[in-house]
Nucleic acid binder design. Structure first.
Length: 179
DNA sequence: TAAGTGATCTCT
DNA sequence: GAGATCACTTAA
């Protein structure tokens, strides 16, 4: 069988404006190695959290021990526990000192950020690790290009506390064909 | 619609 | 230290 070796997305992909990265993620494959077996699913839903001013972002009040990874370089995992039981999986984007990340909300059959991490057995051991194959959790470009019209932009979920402006920002990207 | 769940942040 | 808050899910 052909040895495809799909390109693994790295800093070149993630170190760009957060919204552009978020728009490009649907159709890319989230890959997870568990005990030698590789599980991969196409991303279908993501949300961008971009910069100091984004009141929905953990970073809008400045750096804390939890969100420190968001202030680091692009291409690292930011994982944290929410509501006491769900791990949220994010990829840091943009340059160092600029806090931004993209929450992965759905991939393949896994719908919902908490269910996604449960299915892929992701917890805070990934926090601060690089998005690389050697770390067992990475993203591949398998040549799937999602037409712009199939990517729907809508407001983010669960961020009503952010005030009317930031709550309504269309920072959520959903791949229609798979939603 | 509401409860479960526990780390984290913001006050004292 | 105490209290409030949460980038959610599930069961009714």
């Amino acid at each position: 069988m052909l040895k495809t070796d799909s390109p693994v997305l790295d800093t070149r992909f993630f170190n760009r404006p957060t919204l552009k990265v978020a728009r490009d993620l649907p159709g890319k494959y989230l890959c997870r190695r568990i005990k030698g077996k590789i599980l991969s699913q196409p991303l279908v839903e993501v949300e961008a959290y971009d910069g100091f001013d984004d009141k929905a972002s953990h970073a809008h009040r400045g750096s804390t021990p939890r969100n420190a990874v968001m202030f680091g370089p692009a291409g690292y995992w930011y994982v944290y526990l929410c509501y006491g039981m769900h791990w949220m999986l994010n990829i840091v984007t943009g340059p160092s000192e600029y806090p931004a990340a993209i929450l992965l909300r759905g991939a393949g059959e896994f719908s919902g950020p908490g269910r996604l991490t449960k299915a892929l057995q992701i917890n805070n051991t990934f926090n601060g690790k690089q998005v690389t194959r050697s770390n067992g959790l990475w993203v591949e470009d398998r040549g799937v290009t999602v037409p712009a019209k199939e990517v729907k932009r809508m407001p983010r979920v669960g961020v009503d506390y952010a005030g009317p402006v930031w709550t309504k920002k269309p920072y959520r990207f959903v791949w229609n064909a798979h939603a």
